[in-house]
């Protein structure tokens, strides 16, 4: 058990530091919400918050681009991309939810969020456009 504890300590010591934030949270332009809390973001992207306070159905979209995805998940969902993917697979294989919509590029995210009321996602800050609104995170 001592060796086991030492092994765990070594793993912790070798972990990478958190990355800096350079993304924004975007939502459909007509969403009746302008700010979200970090706790709400975690609930939203884990499928636990399904309705906005303004009444719209929450629809999440995932940007499958490693750098932005890892940064967003580490800051607000407290999971790695692998853990996040595993979480959603657990939801899918127990029948609790379907897999979220996933896109390869920020442009696809902007297009999807801009055309789905209640949609929310994240993109590199430079990719945000007038087709969506940027939410303030408290």
């Amino acid at each position: 058990m001592v060796l086991f504890a030492l092994w765990v300590c070594l793993l912790v010591a070798n972990a990478k530091p958190a990355a800096a934030e350079d993304f924004v949270v975007v939502a459909h332009k007509d969403l009746g919400v302008n700010t979200v809390t970090s706790a709400e973001l975690e609930s939203i992207f884990l499928g636990k918050m399904s309705t906005w306070s303004s009444g719209e159905k929450v629809t999440i979209a995932i940007l499958d681009e490693d750098a932005t995805l890892e940064k967003f998940l580490a800051k607000y969902v407290h999971k790695t991309a692998s853990q996040f993917n595993n979480y959603w697979k657990q939801m899918v294989f127990t029948g609790k939810a379907g897999m979220p919509d996933t896109f390869k590029t920020p442009a696809e995210i902007i297009s999807f969020v801009g055309s789905h009321p209640g949609a929310i996602s994240f993109v590199p800050a430079a990719a945000a456009s007038g087709a969506v609104k940027t939410l303030t995170v408290n």
Partner: peptide, 8 residues
């Protein structure tokens, strides 16, 4: 307990 890539 999950801390980055470590799960205990």
């Amino acid at each position: 307990y999950t801390w980055r890539n470590l799960v205990v």
